[in-house]
């Protein structure tokens, strides 16, 4: 009887994991705020990036302010392959990253181990 109960709980847990990680969930998207011809946005690094999708205006110099609060060494670097940027993110320190917004398009960024991803949309 106990074993049947454990089996049911186990299967429910598998169902939950599948739904939680593989199901469709909204992605936090934010548009950078423009002030004095500079667009800025703060990115909080904690278990991933928030926001995970950033929309930037083309042609306006952009700064992304990354702050890592996560202790994991998984997230200790942020890499923008298209821009040749690979920056260390010391925990708790704000790191400003300048982005060249002259070309419209979608650009991925990732953590140093390529496990967490974010997307930059320039339009």
């Amino acid at each position: 009887m106990l074993r049947i109960l454990v089996l049911i709980i186990g299967l429910l847990l598998i169902g939950f994991i599948t739904w939680w990680f593989f199901g469709k969930h909204a992605i936090a998207t934010e548009t950078a705020s423009v002030a004095d011809d500079i667009q800025q946005i703060d990115v909080n690094v904690n278990g991933g990036y928030s926001p995970e999708r950033i929309v930037l205006k083309r042609g306006v110099p952009a700064t992304l302010n990354f702050t890592r609060r996560d202790p994991s060494s998984c997230l200790d670097r942020v890499v923008f392959p298209d821009f040749g940027i690979n920056r260390e993110l010391p925990k708790g320190e704000q790191q400003s990253i300048q982005i060249d917004t002259s070309k419209a398009g979608e650009y991925q960024w990732a953590c140093g181990m390529d496990m967490f991803h974010g997307k930059l949309i320039i339009k």
Partner: peptide, 15 residues
């Protein structure tokens, strides 16, 4: 800490 933060975002990692 890291695992929980990721979990809330529907992510997971080595932690």
């Amino acid at each position: 800490q890291s695992a929980w933060a990721s979990f809330k975002k529907h992510h997971s990692n080595m932690d």
